[in-house]
Simulated scan of single mutants.
Amino acid sequence: MASVVPTPHENPETPVEREVRLARGRAFIAEGLADIAAGRFIEGEEAVRWLEAEIAEAEDASR
């Protein structure tokens, strides 16, 4: 997976892009915490499959 820290030869994200990324991350964390608080969670292989799908979706979105 690519590093989220830009190297000197990469174009760093703009302040607006950064805020959008951080807001998306905050929303994702809030959703996860709400699910845990409500007793909604998955374990084992189901969790691994879900995480792999989330990673693939994020990688596709970044292209």
Rank of each mutant, 00 (worst) to 15 (best):
Met1Ser: 13
Ala2Thr: 14
Ala2Asn: 15
Ser3Phe: 04
Val4Thr: 13
Val5Glu: 14
Val5Phe: 15
Pro6Val: 05
Thr7Met: 11
Thr7Phe: 11
Thr7Pro: 01
Pro8Ser: 05
Pro8Gln: 02
Pro8His: 02
His9Leu: 15
Glu10Trp: 02
Glu10Ser: 04
Glu10Asp: 07
Glu10Cys: 03
Asn11Ala: 11
Pro12Lys: 04
Pro12Ser: 04
Pro12Cys: 03
Pro12Glu: 03
Glu13Phe: 11
Glu13Met: 14
Thr14Val: 02
Thr14Glu: 01
Pro15Trp: 00
Pro15Val: 00
Pro15Gly: 00
Val16Asp: 15
Val16His: 13
Glu17Ile: 00
Glu17Ser: 04
Glu17Gly: 04
Glu17Thr: 01
Glu17Ala: 09
Arg18Met: 08
Arg18Glu: 08
Arg18Pro: 00
Glu19Met: 05
Glu19Ala: 14
Val20Lys: 10
Val20Ser: 03
Arg21Ile: 03
Arg21Ser: 04
Leu22Ser: 09
Leu22Ile: 14
Arg24Leu: 14
Arg24Ser: 08
Arg24Asn: 10
Arg24Phe: 09
Gly25Val: 08
Gly25Ser: 12
Arg26Glu: 11
Arg26Tyr: 05
Ala27Lys: 08
Phe28Trp: 11
Phe28Cys: 10
Phe28Ile: 05
Ile29Gly: 00
Ala30Pro: 00
Glu31Lys: 09
Glu31Tyr: 06
Glu31His: 13
Glu31Asp: 15
Gly32Glu: 03
Gly32Ala: 03
Gly32Ile: 04
Leu33Cys: 11
Leu33Met: 13
Ala34Lys: 10
Ala34Tyr: 02
Ile36Phe: 12
Ala37Leu: 09
Ala37Pro: 00
Ala37His: 06
Ala38Gln: 04
Ala38Asp: 07
Ala38Phe: 01
Ala38Tyr: 00
Ala38Ile: 00
Arg40Leu: 06
Phe41Arg: 13
Phe41Glu: 15
Ile42Leu: 11
Glu43Thr: 08
Glu43Pro: 01
Gly44Phe: 03
Gly44Trp: 02
Glu45Gly: 06
Glu46Lys: 12
Ala47Tyr: 11
Ala47Gln: 07
Ala47Leu: 13
Val48Gly: 01
Val48Trp: 05
Arg49Trp: 05
Trp50Lys: 13
Trp50Cys: 12
Trp50His: 13
Leu51Tyr: 15
Leu51Ser: 10
Leu51Pro: 01
Glu52Lys: 10
Glu52Val: 06
Glu52Leu: 10
Ala53Arg: 07
Ala53Ile: 02
Glu54Tyr: 07
Ile55Phe: 05
Ile55Tyr: 05
Ile55Asn: 02
Ala56Phe: 02
Ala56Asp: 10
Ala56Gln: 09
Ala56Trp: 01
Glu57Pro: 03
Glu57Val: 06
Glu57Phe: 10
Glu57Cys: 12
Glu57Gln: 14
Glu57Ile: 06
Glu57Ala: 15
Ala58Trp: 07
Ala58Asn: 06
Ala58Gln: 13
Ala58Phe: 09
Glu59Thr: 04
Glu59Trp: 02
Asp60Cys: 11
Ala61Arg: 12
Arg63Met: 09
Arg63Asn: 13
